[in-house]
Amino acid sequence: MTEPTVQAVNLRKTFGDFVAVDNITFSVEKGEVFGFLGPNGAGKTTTVKMLCGLLMPSSGSAKIAGFDVAAQPDDVKNSIGYMSQKFSLYSDLSVSENIEFFANIYGVDNTMLKARKKDILGLVGLEGREHTMTSSLSAGWKQRLALGCSIIHEPRILFLDEPTAGVDPDSRRMFWDLIYSLAQKGMTMFVTTHYMDEAENCKRLGFIYNGKIIASGTPLEIKRTKMRGTIIEIDTDSPSEALRLIKPVETMKEVSFFGRLIHAVTDTPAGETEQPIKAIHGVLDRNGIKVNRISTIPPSLEDIFISLIEQEDSHEKA
């Protein structure tokens, strides 16, 4: 099947005068792990809610598994699972009662229920806690239960809105292992997150800021296309002195500390950095500063997003 499982076209949502999501267009392929990235208030939750039929788009359209969100909400709901950012299971039901409840709602009848429940409990690692009251679970365990309840019916597409917020590293790993294994089975994963390391793990990314998608593609594509210039990493014994000296060097766009190290961004493309490296080396040597190491490094996503946001903000001001 070549048709994408999630396709949004000019999707827009306004609350009064405020534009929360601004004409975004993107698509997600079947079986891929799509990371939806953006700072607080960027419009991630709003987008997810529109895709799940919780919010009516102000304009634009979206198709989920080939069904139109506005015109065929029932078919859409049969194809998706949703785990909301805010915990929204019944806290006065036990773990097992919550699972049974949602299983029944999704039409899993009682003959299959037991097996399915066991699967789910195993999948999210909640065995032995079946009878715990949900209200007394810790945040991480609540998230696991929420994940479990959202995949009970083996949806074709799973929307996870910040599934790992407030979750310890161990559980985070479990979450991501589960996300991959579900994707492997052909389930499309739509995950919003703040974590850059998680973003690196996604097959493709959409980066949303102020309601607009300002970058999308595989992490590699984004790094290749969105980073203007190259990062040179310098390790010296007296970084503050070095920083002062490097700043005026020709072609330097931005020079900043990166821990004990210095990151200097030049205008020149990645393949042509001998000239600037030589220049930096020269000025430091002349001033008697010992250079332990100097080399170009690949940009991290964080580097890119920070620079993208800065570009966007300066754009806005202009």
Binding site: L89, Y90, C149
Partner: peptide, 9 residues
């Protein structure tokens, strides 16, 4: 909790 119900069919 109604949200989790509304996304179901």
């Amino acid at each position: 909790t109604i949200e989790q119900l509304i996304v179901t069919p």
